[in-house]
């Protein structure tokens, strides 16, 4: 029993990352019906950008290093949001009248460009890069499991960001405009909503969340690689589908469930089965409930 609780604890931690990245997938899907396969690579690029910035400003070992991580995190969120917005502006927006399948293929292309772009960039490249700062092992025990303060902070930060998005989409006028654009772009235009701007903002938010997840990945796991976006992208996509793609709460819920399922699965079968468990869960979900847990029609849609 306590073993199960441990796996659930680990799963929630893992799910926090999935959820953050899944939110970006889900929001973009909600507004454009586009599965943005490049989203995981925004996350990957963000990890490299934060690596470089942290290296440039130097973090040392003082107590101030965590403040450095925080402001670098914010800067990276803005940069990644900007990158996502730029991708939308240069690639997806000119294709707005094209079939959605064309956009998806463009997204796959963009994903390749970003991965190979990082691969050929001097100082980045194909090797694993070691992050200049990692979270210390100190922490607290819960049951028989040890959690670090870093893990707790990561879960809390993810939770706050997700709540922020939930509030933004659910309560603010901008959020209502996002939902309006999601439902009927022409009608939204007729309300005086600048649809292109709203879509750009959605890309920005999705990118920024991926940026936050990337910085936290870097400082927690300590190393990054140019292919890291591919796996996380697929897992986050799975999380978004599990929860009901296009749904804000669903992305977070799907992230947590995927994290827990994967954590329990690897506890039973071993770590090399992580992706098998994740995609197995996806197949089962698509089989029994294709709309996801909070299927698009019933709950709040982005």
């Amino acid at each position: 029993m306590s073993l199960l609780l441990n796996e659930i604890g680990n799963g929630i931690f893992l799910g926090a990352f999935f959820g953050l990245v899944a939110l970006g997938y889900s929001m973009v899907y909600g507004i454009l019906r586009l599965i943005n396969f490049a989203h995981g690579d925004f996350y990957m690029v963000a990890a490299f950008v934060s690596f470089t910035i942290l290296g440039a400003v130097g973090v040392g070992h003082s107590h101030n290093q965590w403040w450095t991580v925080v402001w670098v995190g914010v800067v990276v969120m803005v940069i990644t949001g900007g990158l996502a917005m730029l991708a939308n502006q240069l690639i997806y927006r000119p294709m707005r009248r094209a079939a959605i399948l064309s956009l998806m293929i463009a997204a796959i292309g963009l994903s390749q460009v970003l991965e190979n772009g990082v691969l050929v960039t001097p100082r980045w490249g194909a090797t694993y890069l070691v992050f200049p700062v990692t979270t210390p092992p100190s922490g607290f025990s819960l049951g028989s499991n040890h959690y670090t303060w870093g893990q707790l902070v990561i879960v809390l930060v993810s939770g706050l960001l997700a709540l922020g998005v939930y509030f933004l989409v659910g309560r603010t006028l901008l959020g209502k405009a996002m939902r309006a654009v999601s439902e009927d772009r022409i009608a939204a235009t007729l309300m005086g909503i600048n649809v292109d701007l709203v879509i750009a903002i959605v890309f920005f938010i999705g990118g920024a969340l991926a940026g936050a997840a990337a910085v936290m990945t870097g400082v927690y796991y300590g190393q990054i690689n140019y292919l890291m976006g591919f796996t996380v992208g697929l897992e986050a996509f799975t999380a978004a589908v599990l929860g009901g793609i296009g749904n804000i709460g669903g992305a977070v819920l799907g992230g947590l469930i995927l994290g827990i399922v994967q954590s329990i699965g690897t506890g039973i079968f071993g770590a090399e089965w992580a992706l098998v468990v994740a995609f197995g869960a996806l197949v089962l979900m698509l089989w029994f409930r294709p709309t996801g847990l909070l299927g698009e029609r019933v709950a709040r849609r982005m």
């Binding site: 006028l173 209502k176 405009a177 939902r179 309006a180 439902e183 009927d184 022409i186 009608a187 939204a188 007729l190 309300m191 005086g192 909503i193 709040r300 849609r301």
Partner: peptide
């Protein structure tokens, strides 16, 4: 200059109140 399109095209997944709020978005 406001246009109520054919078929009304209200936002069905939003509440009445939210629909009304959006009506003032462009102002």
């Amino acid at each position: 200059l406001v246009h109520v399109p054919e078929g009304r095209r209200i936002f069905t997944t939003l509440t009445i109140g939210e629909n009304l709020e959006l009506g003032a978005y462009g102002t």
